[in-house]
C-alpha cells in the first residue's frame, strides 16, 4: 500500500487562477520524497492536499489508507492531528509553553489524542534523543535557533505520525545547518519507518531523497 496516492488531482485558487494538476502520484511507505520546483509551482499546495487542509476540486487523495477527499473538514482535522507530523519553515513554537509542553502540544488540541504517561514518556525520550533532555522545562525564549528547530521536529514526531510533512525547513539556513536539519529528519523518520515528504527548493538536498517530484509552473 502507498503512503500517499493522488489520482487525477486538480486544485485551483479560484476561477482562472493558479492550478495544480497531478494525474497520478504515489509515495511508498517509509520513503523520503522531495518536492521541488520554482516559487509558485504549487509545492505548498501539494502539502496542503496531503495534509487535508485543502481539498481537491477533482480527483482523489489517499494518505495512509484514508480517503481525504471524502472526509468532512472536522474528520480531516482529527485525522491530521493523529497521523500527520508537521515541520514548518520557521520552526514556530508557542512561547508561553516550556519545551516539553511545546513537544506535547498536539495532544492538547484534540480529545482523541490522550496525553497519558506513555505520551509524556515519548516526548521526554524524543527530547533526550535530540540532546534537549536538560531543556525540557525551559522557555523557548532561551533556546538557540538550532535548539528551536529540534524542538519543532520532536513535536512533529511525538504523535508517532505515519507521515511527516516538512515545508521548506532548510530555507534560510546556511549549508551546514541545513545539512544538520536534514540529517536529523532523515535519521528520525528512517528509524521509525515514517514517510517523509519535504518541500524544498534547496537543490543540495536532492541526494538525500528516495524520490523527487519536480513541479513546474503552468504556462
Amino acid at each position: 500500500m502507498s503512503a500517499v496516492a493522488l489520482r487525477g488531482v486538480r486544485f485551483a485558487y479560484g476561477e482562472g487562477a493558479f492550478a495544480l494538476d497531478l494525474p497520478e502520484w504515489t509515495v511508498a511507505v517509509g520513503s523520503r520524497v522531495g518536492v521541488v520546483g520554482p516559487s509558485g509551482c504549487g509545492k505548498s499546495t501539494l502539502l496542503g492536499l496531503i495534509s487535508g487542509t485543502l481539498t481537491p476540486d477533482a480527483g482523489t487523495v489517499q494518505v495512509g489508507g484514508a480517503a481525504l477527499h471524502d472526509m468532512s473538514e472536522r474528520a480531516r482535522r482529527a485525522w491530521r492531528l493523529r497521523h500527520v507530523g508537521f515541520v514548518f519553515q520557521d520552526f514556530p513554537l508557542v512561547d508561553y509553553l516550556d519545551v516539553l509542553d511545546n513537544v506535547l502540544l498536539p495532544f492538547r488540541l484534540d480529545a482523541t489524542l490522550a496525553l497519558d504517561d506513555a505520551a509524556r514518556a515519548r516526548g521526554v525520550a524524543l527530547l533526550d534523543e535530540l540532546g534537549l533532555g536538560a531543556y525540557r522545562s525551559r522557555s523557548p525564549f532561551h533556546l538557540s535557533q538550532g535548539e528551536r528547530q529540534r524542538v519543532a521536529i520532536a513535536r512533529a514526531l511525538v504523535t508517532q505520525p505515519s507521515i511527516v510533512l516538512a515545508d521548506e525547513p532548510t530555507t534560510g539556513l546556511d549549508a551546514a545547518r541545513a545539512d544538520d536539519v536534514m540529517a536529523l529528519l532523515d535519521a528520525l523518520v528512517r528509524d521509525r519507518g515514517t514517510t517523509l515528504v519535504m518541500v524544498t527548493h534547496d537543490l543540495r538536498m536532492q541526494d538525500r531523497f528516495d524520490a523527487v517530484l519536480t513541479l513546474g509552473v503552468r504556462p
Binding site: T53, R74, F86, D110
Partner: peptide, 16 residues
C-alpha cells in the same frame, strides 16, 4: 497570530 496560525496548521479548528 503566529501561534494561532501554527495551531490551525497542526489541525486545530476554529472552534478549538
Amino acid at each position: 497570530r503566529d501561534e494561532i496560525t501554527l495551531l490551525r496548521r497542526m489541525g486545530a479548528g476554529r472552534g478549538t
